[in-house]
């Protein structure tokens, strides 16, 4: 193998990598925040006794579960501006795609934890005259919250990985920076290896931290 490795040229571009990392973290953070809010709203709809709330919420979740993320990115970037008659930048489109997608997953995290509690807990509340809402707030949610931690971390982990799709809209995150550096340096081998390692470190650190938080929260 006669290939001459040269990581020096690539690593000299560290400001661009850093900028990309910033872009990745930015859309991840916004989408987590908005996704949790939207996810909670959809979960409420999915567990409602009113069919006109429950059915659309179910379709929403099923749709996102059964279509690839990249389709959402392209749809929000190229198709939505036509329906809604608005201008759409790569950042907005990426955040919209990530938020709506993660909302469907967070919805299932919330719902799954609530449904995992035994029916007796609802009955215990009802038997002393509590309303459904009081039981939910005082009895169900405090217990369900702990069960949400693990799946929540897992979904967030997936969301961070999915941010890489934003590069296909030329949004300046890690992978997009990498393609730019690769084009400048003609060193795809080194560039993509470096970017893979950056992701690995980022996500591995995240999962270590998350596991620690999870352990602290669930073993009180």
């Amino acid at each position: 193998m006669a290939y001459e490795w040269d990581f020096g040229v690539v690593l000299a571009q560290w400001p661009l990598f850093l900028k990309g990392l910033g872009g990745t973290l930015l859309i991840a953070a916004i989408s987590i925040g908005l996704g949790v809010i939207l996810g909670a709203i959809i979960a409420t709809g999915r567990m409602s006794r009113l069919a006109w709330l429950r059915i659309p919420a179910g379709i929403y979740v099923d749709f996102y579960r059964n279509t690839p993320g990249i389709v959402h990115f392209f749809w929000f970037y190229y198709a939505l501006p036509i329906v809604a008659d608005i201008r759409m930048g790569p950042l907005e489109a990426a955040v919209l795609a990530l938020t709506t997608q993660s909302a469907s997953f967070y919805c299932e995290v919330f719902r799954g934890a609530i449904l995992s509690l035994p029916k007796g807990q609802w009955e215990g509340g009802a038997a002393i005259g509590m309303t459904r809402f009081q039981t939910l707030r005082r009895v169900i949610l405090p217990q369900a919250a702990l069960r949400m931690v693990g799946p929540f971390i897992e979904r967030t982990f997936e969301l961070i990985k999915t941010t890489s799709l934003a590069s296909t809209l030329a949004y300046g995150e890690l992978l997009y920076s990498a393609t730019q550096i690769s084009a400048q340096t003609y060193r795809p081998m080194e560039v993509y290896t470096v970017v893979a390692l950056i992701y690995f470190c980022l996500l591995f650190t995240f999962s270590l931290l998350a596991r620690r938080v999870e352990r602290r929260l669930t073993h009180v």
């Binding site: 990985k161 999915t162 941010t163 890489s164 799709l165 590069s167 992978l175 993509y192 290896t193 970017v195 893979a196 992701y199 690995f200 996500l203 591995f204 999962s207």
Partner: peptide
């Protein structure tokens, strides 16, 4: 711990 897209591109 690496996004699938990065793996494909790599």
């Amino acid at each position: 711990n690496i996004p699938a897209l990065i793996q494909l591109i790599w």
